[in-house]
């Protein structure tokens, strides 16, 4: 689904590469944590996948497309297949929850009846049914992030990128968000999440790709993560159970069994 081949990205001439000779592959339906300290190149990797940046050298493939040779007028089409969630939510303050989610469909020209069906469905799935008319400032941080996730997922993209989605949230709320991302993953969506929240990584027991100063230093199937700034402090929960058994198959247009509360 996503493949990096010896990708190097240098922002300013002569500067240290933000991403240095990275090769990795994320397969369809995988859930991958991209971990590492600030400045390790996590965000640059996401920018490269979104074709917000082009690699200085090497190749990036997303859904079979070589992003190096992708002409810029095809970039919007690429991005329609990728949902993105950020640490700072990036909601439109003067629009309601419903309008924020609908906005993503309006601007790519979806017909009104599609919006009328898909948006409530998605809001229900992320656990915001009944809050359609609220504005972002009337919601808690976790709820705002759910709106952002709904917006990213409303077009049912095959890939969901999350850049520190729990960075502004407390641990309990974060857990709810992670459950939601996990559910989205189990609809068949490939999820790549950049984070340095070790608790979450360790609880989820998913594939971990660790970056350090732009290089891949570890790629582990059911990995854990120890933050380097915390030295070797033992994990709070040395053997956490996976949050959910990955056996249940959820249909893509998910009907909802109430998302975890906050």
């Amino acid at each position: 689904m996503i493949r990096f081949e010896n990708v190097t990205k240098v922002y300013a001439r002569g500067a240290r590469p933000a991403v240095d000779d990275v090769s990795m592959e994320v397969r369809r339906g995988e859930f991958v944590f991209l971990v590492g300290a600030s400045g390790s190149g996590k965000s640059t990797c996401l920018h490269l996948i979104l074709r917000e940046e082009r690699p200085t050298s090497g190749k990036v493939f997303v859904a079979g497309r070589d992003l190096r040779s992708l002409s810029s007028w095809k970039v919007p089409n690429l991005r329609r297949g990728i949902g993105v969630v950020f640490q700072d939510f990036r909601l439109l303050p003067n629009k309601t929850v419903f309008e924020n989610v609908a906005f993503a469909l309006q601007v790519i020209g979806k017909p009104r009846h599609t919006i009328a069906i898909t948006v409530p469905e998605t809001l229900e799935m992320v656990g915001l049914a009944g809050k359609e008319k609220r504005r972002p400032h009337e919601l808690s941080g976790g709820e705002q992030q759910r709106v952002a996730i709904a917006r990213a997922f409303v077009n049912r993209p095959p890939i969901l990128l999350a850049d520190e989605p729990t960075g502004n949230l407390d641990p309990t709320t974060s857990l709810g968000i992670m459950r939601l991302l996990d559910r989205i993953n189990r609809t068949g969506t490939t999820v790549v999440m950049a984070t340095h929240d070790d608790d979450i990584v360790n609880q989820m027991r998913k594939r971990v790709i660790e970056l350090d100063t732009g290089r891949v230093v570890r790629d582990q199937a059911h990995g854990s993560y120890v933050r380097s700034d915390e030295e070797t402090e033992p994990l709070t929960n040395p053997d956490p159970a996976p949050m959910s058994a990955p056996t249940t198959v959820v249909r893509r247009s998910a009907h909802v069994d109430a998302a975890a509360g906050e």
Binding site: L50, W73, P76, N77, L78, R79, R80, G81, I82, G83, V84, R90, L92, F103, A104, V107, I108, R151, A152, N155
Partner: peptide
């Protein structure tokens, strides 16, 4: 946001 969700 428009750019990110793939508006032309």
């Amino acid at each position: 946001i428009m750019r990110l969700v793939g508006a032309s």
